[in-house]
Design a protein around this nucleic acid. Structure first.
Lengths: 232, 232
DNA sequence: GCTCGTCTATTGTGCAGACATATTCCCGAT
DNA sequence: ATCGGGAATATGTCTGCACAATAGACGAGC
């Protein structure tokens, strides 16, 4: 009998097939790495690599000593890429444009200071800017920046380069959070995006930190019709 | 000099620090695995594991023979969990409710058949259902199911178990896609969700396949105020 | 019966070596 | 100058081994 070369991908696929076919039912303990290595005729590390991938993908729960179980609810994960807006526009084949509407230091409003965990009223750099695709409004960016955590931002020419891009290039962050929602366009937003007041807008709000230091909080309101696509 | 134990996590963190500090600038070739292993005094496999993680996270681009480069645009990825709606509601501490509005076989409308890659007008099972949280409308689910790809669905009591959940448990899929957007509530949706017509709704549309066979296409419209949160 | 410590099975990780595979580089032939 | 082919090299993966960390199982002692 010819043995196909044993790769971790092959083992991953075989394991996934067993999960899907219910040969390894949800909640059940599957054989140990050692047993599987013997069954597949390969090293334990190879099985381990395969099962680790499936665990990362949410199909398996693994715990030392307790063994590996098939996940009860295979929580599917979609990974969204969060590109710089300029690239997103370019990827759609449109000409990118950028217009700074206003920038300046202001005391942080409550919803910003509370999200970032700063004292209310602390002065932050506020930037309002419009991203355009082929000259049409694409997204309105309403951003608050902790200037102390982004040294150099004061000197940056935010009319020439978007705060979005300046920060990506110059202020690395360690973690952040993202909230997606839908909101009706208020009068000011509608005027800037040149859409009817009350139109349904797709809104992305992000906040980022470098370790414990808050960097920025931003709300991007996309023009009506925006769709964020990804694969599962 | 005391040597800290060399773990792949430590190497990953050190590499990330070098990227962030620009000691390894964007676009630049970094030392080879062999060189780094020598520098850190560990095995090449350990370095490899660390760099592989960073590549998966989007910080590095790796190619055989060409070496490893710092990514020009560190595309951040957010991973959204896509839970069963019942669990999502329960996780918010609310009582889950489910109401089947209608179900039956109908010819596929064009936008569904084209997304799934089926012939227009092919008969599909159409299910309209409302998910509730503490008795209030939470999300409207408008689903089309390829019954041939989900054997047993005809016999399922979709008034008792949501199609959402039945499919998660009984119809595994290999891949799918997801589109998030904002839309104004039309008259029918507004009536079901008990919200004003024209309200801004968060909409998630999914389509799933098992290999080449389309399984289902679903549009979930969430009640106004819905927020989808994740971390970066 | 209950609690606490010990044993042990299982996964997590590291190491050294080997070979596989992809891709660039360079040199020779044309 | 150009093209083709082989050498060089970096990553990708497998093997076989070792030990660490974890947590369930079990038994001794109260």
């Amino acid at each position: 009998m010819l043995e196909a070369p044993v790769t971790w991908q092959a083992i991953r696929d075989e394991a996934l097939a067993r999960i899907r076919s219910r040969r390894w039912p949800p909640g059940e303990l599957i054989p140990s790495e050692t047993d599987l290595a013997r069954e597949f005729g390969c090293a334990r590390a190879t099985v381990s690599r395969a099962l680790r991938e499936l665990a990362e993908a949410g199909y398996l729960d693994r715990r030392r000593r307790a063994g590996t179980r098939v996940a009860l609810t295979p929580v599917r994960k979609a990974t969204l890429k969060i590109p710089v807006l300029r690239h997103e526009v370019a990827a759609r084949g449109a000409r990118y444009g950028y217009a700074l509407i206003s920038s300046g230091e202001k005391p942080a409003p409550l919803h910003v200071s509370s999200v970032l965990g700063l004292e209310a009223g602390m002065p932050l750099l506020h930037v309002l800017a419009l991203h355009l695709a082929d000259g049409a409004p694409y997204a309105l960016e309403d951003r608050w920046i902790n200037a102390m955590a982004a040294p150099g931002i004061e000197a940056a020419d935010l009319a020439a380069i978007s705060a979005n891009e300046w920060l990506v290039r110059n202020a690395p962050y360690s973690h952040g959070d993202l909230v997606l929602s839908a909101a009706a366009a208020d009068a000011e937003t509608a005027a800037i995006l040149r859409c009817p007041e009350g139109a349904a807008l797709f809104v992305a709000e992000r906040a980022t930190w470098l370790h414990d230091t808050p960097i920025t909080s931003v709300r991007q309101s996309y023009s009506p019709g925006y769709r964020l696509a990804t694969t599962l």
